[in-house]
Design a protein around this nucleic acid. Structure first.
Lengths: 128, 128
DNA sequence: CACCTGTTATATACATAGTATAACAGGTGG
DNA sequence: CCACCTGTTATACTATGTATATAACAGGTG
């Protein structure tokens, strides 16, 4: 999977890396069991330090998106248990996001359409 | 408006302050034209440094939530022009949030209901 | 003139981010 | 056994961001 880092962004490199991998999983470009490049290889490809990649992998592991096999290395393994916990986590971030949206004059309908459209992109052609 | 800061959070104090003020505006606890406490007064109330409050006010001013009147000080003034720009800004954050939600097993319907519910809270009793 | 506003300047302390070099334990294949 | 790969850990260094503290300034008010 192609990773693109914006070095002029105020968002940390390891955070951008995490987000892109999560986006990759959501859009099925990364599938369960798929092996990620080794920390050294990924670092060389992007042009960053090995430890920065290692930090991203460590965070992804702690958050339940990745596991490590001594033999193969890091691979995708999504922990989707704890549905209630996930709902609570996402709700806090969503409140801030929607507050800003509402202040900016975006209506509930605007946001519902946006969620609908993005989710359909993630689900691919499996629209119902 | 009551401000509560979580000093053990990994989120910066000035960022928490910004978010709570934006949430205050969205929930109509802060209305257009309303004067915010002075940087020194707010700092004393919360128990933080004056410069931390000043940074929050500066960010809010740059993002178009607050203006400064030489006479009165900082007051709420929401810039809701540039609707398209706001939509683009919010979309980027929403993509990351929805990606994580989808990975966690939350369906489109789950998220639509959540958005619907939070927006209704913000709109208060003006549900249609 | 005293007092309030935001703003700016300096300095310090601390945490995080990123890089660099090096080494280690575990697993694989020749 | 040995070279080679994996993630992981340790140490050191630089840079940046956060938060604090003290002080001063310009503009406006009463």
């Amino acid at each position: 999977m192609l990773i693109e880092i914006d070095f002029s962004s105020d968002e940390a490199i390891y955070q951008q890396l995490c987000n892109q991998i999560i986006l990759g999983i959501a859009t099925s470009r990364l599938t369960d069991g798929e092996v990620l490049p080794s920390v050294r290889q990924m670092a060389d490809e992007i042009g960053i330090n090995m430890h920065t990649v290692n930090k991203a992998y460590t965070v992804l592991r702690q958050e339940g998106f990745v596991k490590v096999d001594r033999r193969r290395g890091a691979f995708i393994s999504v922990d989707d248990r704890n549905r209630e916990r996930a709902l609570r986590m996402v709700e806090k971030d969503l409140r801030v996001l929607l507050a800003e949206a509402r202040c900016r004059g975006l209506s509930k309908k605007d946001m519902l359409l946006l969620v609908d459209r993005i989710y359909d992109e993630y689900d691919g052609v499996t629209r119902e």
